[in-house]
Design a protein around this nucleic acid. Sequence first.
DNA 1: GCTTGACCTTCCCATTGTGGGAAGCCCCAT
DNA 2: ATGGGGCTTCCCACAATGGGAAGGTCAAGC
Lengths: 162, 162
Amino acid sequence: MNIGQAAKASGVSAKMLRYYESIGLLAQAGRTEAGYRVYSDADVRTLRFVRRARDLGLSLERIKLLIGLWQDDDRASADVKRIATEHAAELRTKIAELTQMCEALEGMAAACHGDHRPECPILDDIARGGQAEAAPNGSKRLGTRREAPGAGAHRAIQGAMR
Amino acid sequence: MNIGQAAKASGVSAKMLRYYESIGLLAQAGRTEAGYRVYSDADVRTLRFVRRARDLGLSLERIKLLIGLWQDDDRASADVKRIATEHAAELRTKIAELTQMCEALEGMAAACHGDHRPECPILDDIARGGQAEAAPNGSKRLGTRREAPGAGAHRAIQGAMR
DNA sequence: GCTTGACCTTCCCATTGTGGGAAGCCCCAT
DNA sequence: ATGGGGCTTCCCACAATGGGAAGGTCAAGC
């Protein structure tokens, strides 16, 4: 099997196959005399593993560890579980960050007329830096979290989209 | 105000100030005779705007648009609202993807003993490519979505963590 | 046998934001 | 005037992927 066929069979692009090999995630593929990479069914099984692990959002770093464990008959399932739960915890954190952003945005958007006029609570809110405008009359303040300024979590929120 | 003070006052690093200027997100800052950048209070207000917008997960591309609208007295709030709702929709999509990943992982992890033994449903699940193992006895299949293979959403799921 | 098109190879570049660091200049206080 | 801290620019790195160029190879059809 050459790289294109392996790519099609595994769902991993040929480009990524070469890349994974270059970073040591995959072993160096065999070569024909002409220099073409050659893949076996076992290789394709590994590739599918990688593909599915990527679909779970795991980093290549962690996938590398998982492959090592997968191919190690003496592994401890605790090691696998730790990797999975660590990643799940990171996902939960990211989900919470994105949810907070999203709710803030949706709140602001709901308060915005969205017409031809320039008045816009969204811009006001962003410009105000997320601080309430002294709540003149008990307005709804949908967009902005009012309690818990969350002074420590600022840079943590950054990176959520990256 | 020089760049360090503006950075401290706005919560945007000096490094990012220079970068934002270089990509045209911010206007070129004034300079002292020695070449030091000089910032005004108005500049700091803009920087805080950017900072807050970043905290909402907006791309610099969109922030650029928002700044333009913010400084345009003739803007239509609809334009602002569209940007906000588009971004919120993208966040919702990403949240859904991450949630799906996370639930799959948590399900697998829950099924894993996590001890010294090698048996591991997590690895089995990933290796099986997310397809049910022919459901021999109606087992719980916690980790894997069984219905809706979602054949179209594959590459869409990729990129969720990036 | 030769051409052609599809495939393979390597190498470089771009993406998105951010940080790290080097080399060199500047400013202020001692 | 000297030292330390701040400023300047420039390059590199990250994570994971795609795009594309320049060139070699294979197989099918003529």
